[in-house]
Design a protein around this nucleic acid. Structure first.
Lengths: 338, 338
DNA sequence: CTGAAAGCGCTTACAG
DNA sequence: CTGAAAGCGCTTACAG
């Protein structure tokens, strides 16, 4: 018995006004009920709730946002370049995890890619212009000006991965140094003595830290070739390592994708994995189970990291004092490659 | 020489009002300049543009949205269940492609996952509640009520993949029947005579169409085992096929992930690929290059599909009459597995 | 071409 | 506990 909107065109959405009329109260009271306000009598509340249900009312975000100065949305910012290579599978995983972590909230997830070139400035302006309540940055390269600009602003921000330069910006990371150390120690535990590493970019903390962990475990400089986290770069790096040290018997690759590339190069060189060369990857993405043999790798706790990022943002948005950064542990997952 | 906001606290963002004052014109004129309006004198326009640049003004979306009844955002809706299995790599690819296709627009991408259970209704209400200007649906299962509800609404919607039930809803698809036929014919061209297929879910058009294409090429029912597009299901299906027909010499899998699973089962059974059994996948995702051997597969033109989806949405939003659906071709990519 | 004014739907002191 | 009223920042007829 919906007495409103009789014989109308495509019926306009009900507003607070409509609900108030149906419930027989003022707009203010409806607003209080909708926002979980306390100063409402049980009768008024019941009437309002009934009216809301009857009308299928849902508040107009724009109107609310205009007065509260909150948008109800947070941005997940990834650079387009990253999206194309290393973070593709990583991105899928973290995006999904963040989406789920956000599900309990009524924040909505806006996905933004950092375009190369002039579009960058537009993005920065946009973020700083109050169009989102907070920003999650996928670990960008160390020198990225965006990080500094955001950290200088009052906008809530959280970084996935430690910033390269020591900026006062909350971040969520997994313990890459420990993870890499663990991976390398696993290889040593297998009796391997000539262990090389395929390191990531030196301008990303994940690259730097994993190399550091490798060296800590080896207690020396080790044998290093660099990649950019992609499979192709891993394949090339492995080929190079074999040239430099034909007898190596273990490799720690700083990403699963690079490990997959290494597997391919090893196969091309006629090496058996793990018999001749044991291989350990990093991330524990789905690909780690796809390779032949499946990869022993360091597990990144994406869901927990996503929850921590969301928690940090929520704390900042609600004005809590400087939330600390969190570093989560990442255990080794042993499969067949080492 | 920024004369506004002297000695203020964290300076509030400039508004149309501020810009108007600095430029010495009315708010209406500023608004016209901002919105590219034509009825503005060159002088006024120049003054306004200078003021905008000086102040770093960027319009408040909420206020604009309140009056225009547009939100400036479109939703990409994926079901959480999908996100977990088949569409994980697919999802990453299409999400990235859509993000890029949207970059030229000033629409922003809101990512929404369909939660299982009661959260569904909330999502539906949200979408229908005018909180987004349009919706892109990743191919859901055929019977999904969300598709029908959206298609009954005036909200611009575009589906990725043909709807299972013939609903009047614009969609963008690649020609799965032709793709599957081509894949199967490729196997026949290789001289294979006992060609099985690992089909996808029968309640998804991609599953149905690819099975149809396989049967068309074979001109018969063929030998079929079903999976759910995931790697594990492909592995199980392959094992089952080998049990039913130990001498098969070709397999067409309806997804790369299932093909990767099939490769694993074949290896476990001691079969060489492609010598003993040739394998063709579908999608041409990154994983297709990761497997050993790399997969011959049917390429999905994700960027073109994304652009077509965005174009359809834009047309609908601007009120153009019923945009047609588009079906794109998907060529076979020959690698080592067949 | 330009401005004064109304109004989009909401929240929030302020009285009562 | 409740309501009248102001105001968030914008767009858009309507006059001129």
């Amino acid at each position: 018995m919906n007495s409103t909107n009789q014989g109308g065109e495509a019926s306009a959405s009900p507003t607070l006004e409509t609900v108030a009329a149906v419930a027989g109260v003022s707009r203010a009271t409806v607003s209080r009920v909708v926002n979980g306000g306390s100063r409402v009598s049980p009768e008024a509340r019941a009437a309002v709730e009934a009216a809301i249900a009857e009308l299928g009312y849902s508040p107009n975000r724009a109107a609310r946002s205009l007065v509260t100065r909150r948008t109800g949305s947070v941005a997940l910012v990834v650079s387009e370049a990253e999206a194309r290579v290393f973070s593709d599978p990583m991105l899928a995983g973290i995006t999904r995890a963040i989406g789920q972590a956000l599900a309990d909230t009524d924040l909505q997830l806006v996905l933004m890619m950092v375009p190369p070139g002039p579009g960058r400035q537009r993005l920065t302006n946009y973020l700083l212009g109050g169009h989102v309540d907070g920003v999650m940055l996928m670990s960008l390269h160390g020198d990225d000006p965006l990080v500094k600009e955001l950290s200088d602003s009052p906008l809530p921000v959280v970084l996935m991965g430690r910033p390269m330069s020591p900026l006062p910006i909350p971040h969520v990371d997994s313990d890459s140094v420990a993870g890499a150390r663990q991976a390398t120690e696993h290889l040593r535990g297998l009796g391997r003595t000539r262990i090389a590493t395929i390191a990531g970019p030196t301008d990303m903390c994940a690259g730097v830290d994993r190399l550091l962990g490798y060296r800590e475990a080896l207690d020396g400089p080790g044998l290093v070739a660099y990649g950019d986290f992609s499979m192709a770069s891993g394949e090339a790096a492995m080929a190079e390592l074999l040239r430099r040290e034909p007898d190596l018997d273990g490799v720690f690759a700083a990403s699963d994708l690079m490990a997959a590339g290494a597997l391919r190069a090893l196969r091309a060189a006629g090496k058996r994995v793990p018999e001749d060369v044991a291989v350990v990857g990093y991330d524990d993405l789905d690909v780690a189970e796809l390779t032949e043999p499946p990869l022993t790798t360091v597990h990144q706790p994406l869901p927990a990291m996503a929850r921590a990022m969301v928690a940090s943002l929520l704390a900042q948005i609600s004005g809590d004092p400087a939330p600390e950064s969190v570093v989560l542990p990442n255990p080794l997952v042993v499969r067949a490659s080492a």
